[in-house]
Design a protein around this nucleic acid. Structure first.
Lengths: 149, 149
DNA sequence: GAATTTTTGACCTTTTTTGACCTTGACTTT
DNA sequence: AAAGTCAAGGTCAAAAAAGGTCAAAAATTC
């Protein structure tokens, strides 16, 4: 079994045992699994992505941690579907449509919708080449949508 | 639990018990919490800043003290003030402090806070040079905050 | 055998903890 | 009043404690 599978399995175990949320110490986990710490990052960035339905938060420094949360699939199905369909580029009109839809269906609060839409505005990307904007918009939208779950 | 969390908790307790204002003796508090005195300063400068919504006053010498006061202003004033104080660069820790405070004071809903915070995350700016990130973060934060009004 | 995925390790950034040394203010003594 | 003493709090930098990044090497997959 590959190291990455071990790591992945360990995280999945934790998630299952603690109904969908796991907080790990990177170095500690790496130690118990006998791998280098950065392997943990690799596994997280390759298998616990927004597309896979996970939210990852972390802090450095003393007492630091990495928290991985699996988003539950109930109302979330709609959101997850959207997140998966976003891809790696997103233009403003499409974003507006998506957000409007979510609000329409009351999956996100009006304030949330307004805030997300604000982040999609070209106003935020002044100075950036058009090419870069759509990529950022996609990343931001996915990240934000997942955090509404 | 980190020492800094203990200190922070102790101060928060005092603030709550005395509706928003606490006066402490640095050495005494350090003594009861079993930490070095300068740890108190660390916690205050890192977590009881203006961004977090606190005013701190102190006096040295015999009978010295440190007084921490939670400031309360109305919502739009607070938001406008913040928007104005955000320059053209914003780092993640500061953004976290600002958003945390807004949520704390119930100026923005938890979902809104989570969404904005998600947009501040470095995870959204993968591949971009560090220099560009802080500028984007500032633009996004301002834009989003304004849209909560 | 080219392309993709995995593994590693060297190096970086952030956050916390601690302690040595500094400054200030109130009170006492000359 | 000036000087001295002691009781606070303040500063700063080093060390420690985490996690993050990136690119080269190795292994797999097609």
């Amino acid at each position: 079994m590959r190291v990455s599978d071990l790591v992945s399995q360990a995280i999945l175990d934790l998630l299952n045992r603690q109904n969908g949320s796991a907080e790990i110490r990177r170095n500690e986990l790496a130690e118990t699994l006998g791998c280098v710490p950065s392997q943990i990052n690799y596994v997280i960035t390759s298998r616990f992505t927004p597309e896979h339905g996970y939210v990852v938060e972390s802090r450095r420094g003393g007492g630091g941690y990495i928290r991985i949360t699996r988003v539950r699939v109930d109302r979330s199905t709609a959101v997850m579907h959207l997140v998966n369909s976003v891809g790696d580029a997103m233009d403003y009109p499409t974003a507006r449509a998506i957000i409007g839809n979510l609000k329409e269906q009351q999956f996100i609060a009006p304030q949330t919708a307004a805030v997300i839409l604000a982040a999609m505005s070209d106003r935020c990307y002044a100075g950036l080449p058009a090419s870069a904007r759509d990529g950022l918009r996609a990343a931001l939208l996915k990240q934000m949508l997942l955090h509404t779950l």
